[in-house]
């Protein structure tokens, strides 16, 4: 890895079952600093995080994964990190890819690097709906920014400092996916995709409950359109 200082941000909401394994794996694979943002968990997420050699920030109430990431960005900015990588607490994201994900941002080739899954997973709960969603958002993003991004819903991303600074002001609070990519692209930030393989969730419930699976497409389509309508500053 280059000389850029990297902070791995792990947003965690009620992840006591899988967090320990994720943090252990991180400790084995990388020397980068790790920040767990406990997003108002009701379980022992914070306690488990504190048993590891990581930094812990705790939201008193649940704000959503986007807000947790934004908190992580602010921490990274305040402590002078060059790059922040979002890595989910549920074990989906393999820290082995950290280096390849950070590389384009560290070298200045991109401002945001997206870990893009290229291997079809099996046993996924709603593969067809999810795949349809990925196609829809991919299309919206392509229409919006004139460039194709295959995996707009991937949460495994590396962000450079300039992006983190912008994200302090304007950021989707619940699902920072397609709308964020459009907003960033329109501000002139360069995104790139890095192939990664993603795993099944280690433990715990999937974040996509029925209510959210109905709300998510609506919110993301609307927010994407709004991102397109807003004049970039």
């Amino acid at each position: 890895m280059s000389k850029a200082s990297v902070l791995v941000v792990v947003p965690a909401f009620n992840e006591e079952e899988s967090l320990a394994a994720t943090l252990d794996e991180l400790a084995r694979t990388t020397r980068a600093d790790v920040l767990v943002v406990d997003d108002g968990s009701r379980d022992h997420t914070s306690g488990i995080a504190r048993q590891h050699d990581v930094h812990v920030l705790r939201h008193a109430v649940n704000l959503g994964v986007g807000a947790a990431l934004q908190t992580g960005f602010r921490y990274a900015l305040e402590r002078g990190y060059d790059i922040a990588v979002q890595l989910d607490a549920d074990g989906q994201h393999d820290p082995a890819y950290l280096e390849s994900l950070v590389e384009p941002v560290a070298s200045g080739a991109a401002d945001v690097a997206i870990g893009s899954r290229y291997v079809a997973r099996t046993g996924y709960r709603a593969p067809r709906a999810r795949r349809l969603g990925m196609v829809v958002f991919s299309t919206i993003v392509r229409l919006g920014i004139g460039r194709r991004i295959a995996d707009t819903t991937s949460g495994f991303r590396a962000y450079g400092r300039a992006v983190m600074e912008v994200c302090q002001h304007d950021f989707p609070q619940d699902f920072p996916d397609a709308p964020l990519l459009i907003t960033l692209a329109r501000m002139g930030f360069r995104t790139c995709e890095v192939p990664v393989e993603m795993r099944e969730r280690g433990a715990g419930r999937s974040f996509y409950t029925l209510g959210k699976s109905l709300y998510y497409p609506y919110k993301n389509v609307l927010a994407s359109l709004m991102a397109l309508l807003r004049r970039s500053a």
Partner: peptide, 14 residues
Amino acid sequence: ENRQLTRELAFLRL
């Protein structure tokens, strides 16, 4: 505003 305050609180506690 609630998000701002919650975040501020988290940093103060840290």
